[in-house]
């Protein structure tokens, strides 16, 4: 998989922290952050996922000139799209070698991992796919190792 360049900006960290309703000044206030044990602004622990913003091919972002599968005039912009629920996120794990800071220019490289299947009463056959992503900084140092597991379900998850 291609390497993605992920420039880390203070305003992006601030917006991300707002979205997870985290008012901790270490995510938006440089002066207050300096006085904490982090010694300056850092990113929240789940921020690495925002690398999606910098993936030119990311399939869950509408792209100029391409049909989008969400609703528009009709319930889906792509006719005949299968009604399967598609992929869901099953697990996410991070190992922090250090914490991300504004000004870091990370390079994320994702490698496919294990694939396994499971039968479930609530959603039929489940196919799990693991992906391991390494985030390295501008000096080539490993900053974060991420392991995500996605699941595709045979049918929408039963809410009963």
């Amino acid at each position: 998989m291609a390497k993605i360049t992920f420039p880390v900006e203070a305003s992006h960290i601030m917006m991300f922290a707002r979205a997870i309703s985290d008012d901790n000044p270490v995510y938006h206030d440089g002066a207050a952050a300096k006085a904490t044990e982090a010694g300056g602004i850092i990113a929240p622990p789940s921020f690495p996922q925002a690398v999606a913003q910098f993936d030119p091919e990311y399939h869950l972002r509408p792209k100029n000139g391409q049909k989008w599968f969400g609703s528009a005039k009709g319930p889906s912009g792509i006719e005949g799209k299968p009604t399967s629920s598609g992929g869901l996120h099953a697990e996410q794990h991070y190992e922090y070698h250090r914490h991300i800071r504004p000004g870091d220019v990370l390079t994320a490289e994702t490698m496919p991992g294990k694939v396994w299947e499971k039968e479930s009463k609530r959603a039929g056959k489940l196919t799990f796919r693991e992906r391991v992503t390494e985030y390295r900084d501008q000096n080539g140092e490993l900053v974060i190792t991420a392991r995500g597991v996605g699941v595709t379900t045979e049918r929408p998850v039963d809410q009963g």
Binding site: A19, I20, I42, E91, Q92, H93
Partner: peptide, 21 residues
């Protein structure tokens, strides 16, 4: 992310070495 807010409020800023869900 919401779970991580509780977590970092508890353990402090920049101290996490692992977090998985």
């Amino acid at each position: 992310g919401l779970t991580g807010k509780m977590l970092t409020n508890y353990v402090g800023d920049g101290t996490l070495t692992k977090f998985g869900v």
